[in-house]
Structures are given as C-alpha cells and as structure tokens.
Nucleic acid binder design. Structure first.
Length: 1056
RNA sequence: GGGCGGGUAGCUCAGCGGCUAGAGCAUUCGCCUUACACGCGAAGGGUCCGGGGUUCGAAUCCCCGCCCGCCCA
C-alpha cells in the first residue's frame, strides 16, 4: 500500500529504469509503489485553479462520492473509483485543468451502529448506550474508529492508483465542512424552509432514533389478525332490528389499543348510521372513544359491492370496524387529520423510545391497563390478547401474512412513532422543482428543463425527475450522537400576556442603546440568530412578530427555538444561561453530503477555509469559482435520490443566493451524472459481508495488480444495471477472488511483452532515418497507423459518452489483435533494415501507452520510463509531443490527423489476413507443421495485385515459394474472395483422408451458404424493396460462394 | 402498487432493423514458431426466454405472457 510521499523526488527504481530493457516479467507489486511516489512527488494530481482563471486551461472536475468511514472499500467502490480515475486521467492528458476531489463521509447512523456493536463485542458496552457512555466519551470512540477507517480507505484508493488531489482531502465533519453545514442550516432556517413538526416517524427502538424511509426495508412475516370486542357505551339497535352491545375490530396490532382514540366504520356500511357518533369504552383503560365514518375502514367481503371492494385482500379479514391509533399508525394518523373535530383525544402515544409500553410519553388515562406498562411491545401483545381472552373479548384469531418494515442498521422492527423532528420543506419551488429544472430539456418528460444537467445512461433522468415530483418533506433530525449537532436551542415556555415578561425576563433587559436586546434577537432583528415559535398544542409555527408582543388568542405553551449561525453567537447571547438547551439531535448524514460540491471547495467562507487548511494550498476562493459547478459525477443508482437530488437542490439554492440569481436559481452542481452498474456475485446477489461473497480490492491488487483490476472492471462497465462477477474462494489463501481478473492481468502482461519486444528491436537497430517527419511507407505501417487512428477516435467517443467497456475493449483489440497479432508479426522480417518502420513502431507504442494510461496507469508508466529514453522521430499524422519530466501521467492525449485513416491500406491488409488465415486453416486441418515451408501456386497477376502484401503472406504463413506454375504433385485448393489458389508441398506423404474430410466439410458449408443466398434472392419482395446495394451485395456473395463451391467440389472429385 | 433493467455459446457479456449472430473465459486439437504458455495457431459449441404482429428482412421494433434483478412507494 502506498506510503506518504518522501521529500526527495523519487527516481524510477532499478527494475523500472535499467535502460530501455524491461525485466522479463511484469510483477505489479515491484513497480506500483515506486510509480505512485513519482506521481505524488511531481504533484501530478494537483489542480491549479489559477491556470483556469488566467485562461490557460479549461476546468474539469469530479467529486468523489465520499465513502462511509464505516468499513473498508469493496469492489463496487473499486469500480466507481476506477471509472472516475479514467475520466480524471484522460481529461488531464487532454489538457483540462483537472480536479478530482477526495474525501470521506462520517455516515452518522451507520458508523454509530458499527461502533456500538464493536464496543459491545469488546465488552466495553453493556445495557443502554445512553446510560453507559456520555455523549463526549462515545463520540471519542467513534472518532478513533473513523481515523482508523479513513486511513484504510485512503490507502485503498491510493493503491488503486486514484489520481485525486490528495492535499485537498476533506471529511464531512472537518471544520470546513462543518461551517458549510452550519451556514446552510442557518440560511434555510432563516428562510423558513427548516421547520419543526410532530410527525410519525420510522422509529428504530433498538437504536432509539428516527430513520429515513430509505434506511428501512420490508419483509413479509407470519402474523395474525386478532378480533377484539370493544364494548359500546350503551347498546345500539341496528337497521335489521338486532341489538348489539359491542363492535368487533380486526387488527394486526392489538398492543396499540392502549393508544386508540377512535373506531372507524365505512360510511357505506349499513350499520354506520346507527353507530357513528356513539362511543366505545376501551377495556381496562376505560377510555371513551368515538365511532367515526371513514372509507379507510374496509367493508367486509359480504357487504362489498364494487369489484374494487371485493378484491381488496383485507375484505376477507374485515369486520367493518377498525381501531384508530393515530400515534402508532400512519393511516390512522391521516384519518385523525380528516376528523380533527370528531376525535378530540387526537394522538395518544403509549410507547417509550426504547419500545416499551409507557404512560410517561403522552398517555395518562392508564386505568387498569397499568398492568401492561413496562412490557416490550411483543410482550404487551401477548398479555393484551390474553387479557381480552380472559374477559371473553377475543372473538377470534386468524393467521395472516403481512409486510413489516425493518431497520437496515439494527434489523429491529420499525415502530411508527410520534415525535418532534426537524424537516426541510424540500417541496418549496426553490428546492425540488428547481432540481428538476436543472435537467437538460431533452431529459425531461414533463415540465421544462433549462439546465445543462444530463444523466448517462439517460433513462436515469426519469428516476431523478419522478423523485422530485413526488417528494415529501425531508426529516433531517436523527437521535444520534455522531454527526453535526443541530444548531438550535430550545426553551419550553407558557406564554400569556403576563408570563411572557417573567419567562424571558432574565435576559430581556440585556439590551442597551448600542446593542440589540434579547427581545430583538428573538424577533429576528439580529444577524446570525433566528427564532421560531412552535405552539406545542398543534405544532404550528407562529410568526415572532405576533408573539412579541403576544397577540390575543395566541396564549399557550410554546417551544421557542433559536437557531444560531455559529457557536460564538450562541455563547454571546448566553442562550444556555437564559434557560435554552441545545437540541440533542444531529443532522441526517445526507444533509452534510448534500453540501459536498460546496463544502469541499471552501464554501461559505473561502478565506477562512484557506486559513483552516493551509495544506490545501490556500486557494479556496479560486477553487470554488473555478470548480463549482463540477463537470462529472459518477455514482450508483440508489444514490440518485439520496444524494444527487439533495446536492442539486442545495447547490441551486445556495449558489443562487451567493451569485444574486435568487435562491434556487443557482447552477446545478454538475454537468453530467454518470450512473454505473452494480456488481453482483455469480448468482446475482449483492456482495455483502453477511453473505461472505464480497471481494476485497486489495486482494485482487495483491494477486493480479492494480492495473489488472482496473482494466477488468472497466470492461465490465457496460450500460446495464447490474454486472455479475462469479466469485470463488482461493483454497490457498481463503480469500475471495474471481477468475475474471485474469483478463486484466493477461492483458497487462501482453502489453509488457509487446513493449519488451519493441524495445529490443528499437535498441538493436539504431540507424537513423532520413531527417524530417517520417512518412510511413510500408503496408503494415500504414495499416497500423490507420487502425490506431480509428481506435483513438473510438476511445474519444466512448469516454465522452461514459462507455467505459467500449473504451477498454477498443484498447484491447488494438493492442492484442492488431498490434501484437499482426503488426509485430508483420514487421519482424523488415524492422532491422527499415528506420522509418522503427519510427512508426516507436510512435505507435507510445500512442498506445497514452491511450491505455487512464485505465492501466502503472504498467504504462513503467514501460514509458524505458520507451521515453529512446529518440522519438515524428511520424506524419500522429501528434504525440514528449511529456514534461518524461512521465506518462503528464503526457498529452494522442491526436491523429484524419488522413492517417487509410482505407486502401486496410483493404490490402485484410486481403493479406484472409490469405494467411486460409493457409493456417489448411495447415491446422491437414496437420502441416508451422515449420514446414510450403508452396503457394498463384497466377502472376494475382501475386502482383497483392503488391507488398505478398511478402507479408509468405512470412506470416511460412510460404517457401510462390509460383505461377500449376502443381505437379498432390495439392489442395484455397479460395479467397472468389479466387482459387493451390497449396502444395504440404507433406512428404499426403494424407488423403484428412484432405477428403476437409473438402467434404467445405463443400457442405458452401452449399449451405449458397442455398441461403439463393433463397434470399428468390424472395420477390427482396429485389423490389431492399436497397439496391444490399441486393448487389447478396448477388456478389452468391457468385463467390458458387465459385468456391465449384473449386472445392472439383478437388474432392479429383481425390476420388 | 409505480418505475427501470435483464433473459443471446457451458460461464460472463457485446450486438439493438440488413454481412451466413460475436468477444473473453472454459472445452477439443496442434505448437516452447526471432516478445509473451498470463502465450501462438486452429476447431467445436447458439429453436438469440415463449407466443403473436409489423417488415422484402427481426436477436434487434410493437403487443401478450413467463422468469430473474433493482429502485421508489
């Protein structure tokens, strides 16, 4: 793993630098550290915003999706960071001033959960966290854990070769990022977009915190419907004349009956008229609750009239009566909101934060139900069902399968729970709608897109758009200790005209003529401090100007919430002395990650940021101006809603304010959003610790090398949603690995060996070519340059469209199939004598190294160290200027002139390839050893038309002689493009059986082709409607097949 | 429930209106051929999930269905 850079500029190691000659084998571990040190020492990854401001370069920037400090990186990170590094390195080579900003995320709930678990395992924590640890002590434990994992993660990224601007590395809780969080919170609070609300949240009773919807998952579990008899206050007579003294409710959660405040019946239920407005008396609790009419109550199957009603799966289980528990069920809460008048008791919470029945958190009329207090919800269920049964109030129990929600982190069952939380009103037009408006017009399905933001692949724009169209207020408070503490101080006060002065009197007098008073502060007349008054009774926020002085009718209990823009201001106003207590909660992690495009660049106070982090270079002001908005973001699918959305909203909001465009009108934080595929195991499962199917990038780097891993991952980055990586356990090491990575390792080796060969030839023959730029003359030279020109164009297009597998595969084909299989083989006979060919070989290898560098930075850099010592004659049409310091990392991207693409050379060369392949085929089928030089019988005209190609054919196919004379002894036919030639001298004794087999197969193949082509031409519609060139092509093919078939048949007949 | 992706050679994937459907790995055969056995040369292997339709022509476009996966609710 790379260590911090040494002070002196490291030189290439002996292995790298022993002259142009390379060691026989490429062993990644012997080179990677040395190459890394040279990159760092030369500040190769350093972005200089001044070059952009002075007009010397265009900016290109990427923000790393900050990995959670919870755990080491896995292959998914390896993929994402490889792709980002490819982009960063390619753009750097293309002349962009490139910033790849690194950093890590504190990952509040995830990290706290992991550390808590770890402490329990180590025996340092028993019982409830909040009893065993103080806040500060626990945060210190997490801090230590964070330091450990941040180092691990950084080490992994460096081992992978990630060319981040490491001096600027950030952490979401470092002072610079913390200031951004503070500023953002304050601005939103001030603008009325952060509000307090009593809402039902997803409560994790194990972690004792609210969790976001996206931190939960659902699972089907076996449970029951219980049928509970609720006694009526007085008997009622139904339309059918019968009299009832109770109603029976069907419920899956009998334990929450302690919080019931109503019973609902469907208005279409015939019994409704007789019952609505009457009351139930809850058993044991003796609470009097009303019956209300609401269509939320599902009609029993027997009463259902419409199809929809009949098909409702709950109809089978329904009695027509539903217990309503607003504090413990989202649907019930919504029903209460529709019947505020009819349900005076509203929401009664009967659970404590640790998931036990409690009469201390909102429920007071305990009555005989005190027997349940203190039980867990599961215990309470059993006991409540038993008590109902004992009293004859349990009508029946039916088994039922139901979807339940669980917490991702603790796996505990989620309880809907009524609690005070902070929300961001993201539905405001300056937030979610502004995010959608940032999309490019062609990526919007509804509404107007006016921004530059594009998703790659484009289908993900729909996910982004749909999310904002349906977005709800974002709950940002978390009942945790690890995170950015909410900068709000609370005080509960009962406000009446008279108590107002008394409640706040100790501080109200603080004002003097020169300073604003405490009252001014509360009214929002003071910079950097803002107050909201939340009426406890209904959670409504009341305008401070109506509180001070208090308007009639607004008396009551209030939560006074003071938000301070800095701790200094909070201290200055002596809030705590005045009885205000700081909110114990922290912010949702995504709140700070949402600011990543701002906070990493020093926002909001770039001068202060420069002072805070001198290592980063003190140029935060230029950094923010040049690199926000960024160019590309590469991230995972599920992150679109969690992170991309919030960054977009915040960047547009805050930058809009900064740039005086108006909140919400600022730039989107990035131009392109690339969504990469998810790596799964061979069975299509997510890689995870619990499944034990994860692969550690460092293990792959150790066995295969960093480049091999990177290259393989790049080939896997197609535009599908998932890619599968079959995993196997290495019996020797016990570690997970995958044979897939052999692809990259073999490719790196191939490159290494090709380079060794080229260097050997270039070293051995040094006679200079004629002065001036080399004009390639030989067929292989013209051909390889043409192939190179095409490959560069394909790579350029692929990278511009985030098609990483296309880029990798193009490089693969160019190097392996074109350069190694054909070009290097073709030049063997001529390279020694041809100085111009040596120049082309050198230039082509140089260009290939440049093209491959973004994906395989280490091996290409090592080879380049050797290659760059050789003279580099210019080759016409190929622009590859020598790089600064002889380092590939600083080299320019290869550029070719359009003229380098040579269709004639390609056509001639493919005839050579076809002829050579045909000869090889005959050799293989007739078992003619490669070493046996054979004779090719070919008319003079045909030989002449091959031109330079003839020499290539004879050397590549080991043709001993070419003659126009007909063979005298045994011979076999080969046909190329409809022409027939013969091969002879194949063996001392010809094996006519093998030859017969070969020709028989050939005749069968050709007959099949002939039939197919004839069939196509016989179709009357084809000749009439297909484009003429298609028809002509088919005719040509048929003619060719017929010629070849005739030749093969004749030869077969001649054999007898 | 809504949205999205996928089902092509034994495996992992390209191809997304027109060469007789390709690559890498695996398999078989032959090779230490002036760099490379992590290699070279050759070969075998596919009702392109099923069923309809559009078209001169469909793996590719449309419709219906089946199966797998993901995201959101």
């Amino acid at each position: 793993m790379p260590t911090p850079p040494s002070q002196a500029t490291p030189q290439p190691s002996k292995a790298e630098a022993s002259g142009p000659e390379l060691p026989k084998q490429y062993r990644p571990s012997e080179h990677e550290q040395g190459v890394w040190d040279r990159w760092i020492a030369s500040a190769a990854f350093r972005a200089d915003p001044a070059r952009v401001l002075s007009g010397q370069a265009q900016p290109y920037s990427l923000l790393i999706p900050p990995p959670n400090v919870t755990a080491a990186l896995h292959l998914g990170h390896a993929l994402n960071n490889t792709l980002q590094d490819i982009l960063a390195r390619a753009h750097r080579m293309q002349g962009f001033e490139t910033l790849w900003m690194p950093g890590t995320d504190h990952a509040g709930i995830a990290t706290q959960a992991v550390v808590e678990k770890r402490l329990r395992k180590e025996g340092k924590l028993k019982g409830a966290l909040k009893q065993a640890y103080t806040r500060d002590a626990f945060v210190a434990e997490i801090q230590a854990f964070k330091d450990e994992y941040e180092a691990v993660i950084t080490g992994q990224l460096k081992a992978m070769g990630c060319s981040c601007d490491w001096d600027r590395q950030r952490f979401t809780m470092d002072p610079i990022c913390a200031r951004a969080v503070r500023e953002a919170f304050f601005r939103l609070f001030k603008d009325g977009l952060i509000v307090r609300g009593k809402r039902l949240v997803n409560w994790d009773p194990a972690l004792q915190t609210a969790v976001a919807d996206d931190e939960c998952y659902e699972e089907e579990v076996d449970t029951s419907f219980w049928y509970l008899r609720y006694p009526l206050e007085a008997p009622a007579t139904l339309p059918d004349g019968s009299t009832i003294d109770h109603v029976t409710v069907a419920t899956t959660r009998p334990e929450t009956y302690l919080g019931d405040t109503a019973v609902a019946i469907n208005p279409k239920d015939p019994r409704a008229a007789a019952l609505v407005g009457r009351h139930i008396v809850l058993p044991l609790v003796n609470r009097r609750i009303p019956i209300v009419a609401d269509s939320y109550a599902v009609l029993p199957e027997a009463m259902a009239t419409t199809d929809e009603e009949k098909n409702d799966p709950k109809a089978r289980f329904s009695t027509g009566f539903v217990k309503i528990t607003p504090a413990h069920d989202a649907n019930d809460y919504a029903l209460w909101q529709r019947h505020l008048e009819a349900i005076p008791l509203g929401a009664l919470n009967m659970m404590s934060p640790d998931g036990r029945v409690s009469d201390k958190h909102g429920w007071t009329d305990t009555g005989d139900a005190s027997v349940f207090v203190g039980l867990t919800m599961a215990e309470a269920r059993k006991k409540i069902v038993a008590e109902f049964k004992a009293r004859g109030l349990l009508a029946e129990t039916k088994p039922y399968r139901q979807n339940k929600t669980f917490s991702d982190r603790s796996k505990a069952e989620i309880e809907p729970y009524l609690s005070d939380q902070w929300y961001v009103r993201v539905t405001d037009s300056r937030l979610a709608p502004a995010a959608n408006a940032a999309l490019a017009p062609e990526q919007r399905t509804s509404g107007k897109g006016e921004g530059p933001m594009r998703f790659f692949p484009s289908r993900y724009a729909k996910t982004f758009e749909g999310w904002h169209d349906n977005i709800r207020d974002w709950c940002i408070s978390r009942q945790l200790w690890w995170g950015h503490r909410i900068p709000v101080w609370h005080k509960r006060a009962t406000l009446t005209e008279t108590t107002w002065q008394q409640e706040l009197a100790p501080s109200l007098g603080r004002g003097s003529s020169s300073r604003p008073s405490f009252g001014d502060m509360l009214m929002g007349c003071v910079d950097g401090v803002r107050t909201s008054f939340v009426r406890v009774a209904d959670g409504c926020q009341v305008d401070p100007t109506r509180i001070i002085p208090l308007e009639p009718g607004l008396e009551g209990e209030y939560d006074i919430c003071v938000c301070a823009a800095s701790d200094e201001l909070a201290a200055d106003w002596q809030l705590e002395a005045a009885g205000f207590a700081r909110d114990p909660d922290v912010l949702d992690t995504w709140f700070s990650s949402a600011l990543w495009p701002l906070s990493t660049l020093g926002w909001p106070d770039t001068a202060q940021a420069s002072a805070d982090d001198p290592r980063a270079g003190g140029d935060f002001d230029a950094l923010l101006r040049v690199f926000n908005p960024t160019t590309s973001l590469s991230t995972a699918r599920e992150i679109i809603t969690l992170w991309v959305s919030r960054m977009t909203m915040f960047n547009r909001y805050f930058r809009g304010q900064d740039l005086a465009l108006g909140a919400g009108n600022g730039p989107a934080p990035f131009r392109d959003v690339f969504i990469h595929a998810v790596i799964q195991d061979g069975e299509g499962r997510k890689m995870s610790k619990s499944l034990g199917n994860g692969v550690d990038p460092l293990d792959i780097i150790a066995t295969h090398g960093s480049d091999a891993m990177r290259f393989t991952l790049a080939t896997m980055a197609t535009n599908t949603q998932d890619v599968r990586l079959p995993v196997r356990k290495d019996p020797a090491t016990g570690k997970n690995t995958s044979e897939k990575f052999d692809l990259g390792r073999n490719f790196a080796t191939k490159l290494w060996n090709a380079a060794r060969f080229a260097l050997e030839k270039l070293e051995a023959h040094t006679a200079p070519h004629a002065p001036g730029s080399v004009i390639p003359a030989s067929l292989p030279d013209r051909w390889i340059l043409s192939r190179l020109g095409r490959a560069i164009a394909e790579c350029d297009a692929a990278l511009a469209n985030y098609e990483f597998s296309v880029y990798a595969n193009t490089c693969y084909t160019l190097l392996w199939n074109d350069f190694c299989d054909w070009y290097l083989e073709a030049l063997k006979p001529t390279i020694a004598a041809d100085a111009s060919q040596r120049a082309v070989l050198r230039a082509t290898l140089d260009a290939i190294l440049r093209l491959l560098h973004p994906v395989m930075p280490y091996v290409t850099e090592v080879i380049y160290a050797a290659l760059s010592r050789l003279p580099a004659p210019a080759v016409a049409g190929l622009d590859i200027p020598p790089p600064a310091r002889g380092m590939l990392v600083r080299a320019a991207w290869p550029v070719t002139s359009p003229a380098i693409i040579n269709a004639d050379a390609e056509a001639s060369f493919s005839r050579v390839q076809a002829l050579v392949s045909a000869v090889r085929e005959v050799r293989a089928q007739l078992q003619v050893p490669f070493k046996r030089a054979i004779t090719l019988h070919m008319p003079d005209a045909a030989a002449a038309s091959l031109g330079q190609g003839l020499g290539l054919v004879t050397s590549l196919a080991n043709i001993g002689s070419v003659t126009a004379a007909a063979p005298t002894g045994p011979s076999t036919p080969i046909t190329i493009e409809g022409s027939e030639f013969r091969l002879s001298n194949l063996a001392d004794q010809i094996d006519s059986g093998a030859e017969k087999d070969r020709l028989t197969r050939l005749v069968a193949d050709l007959s099949k082709s002939k039939a197919t082509l004839e069939g196509r031409l016989a179709n009357p519609g084809y000749a009439q409607k297909a484009p003429p060139h298609m028809v002509q092509q088919t005719k040509d093919q048929l003619a060719k097949a017929e010629t070849e078939l005739a030749a093969a048949s004749a030869a077969l007949e001649a054999l007898g």
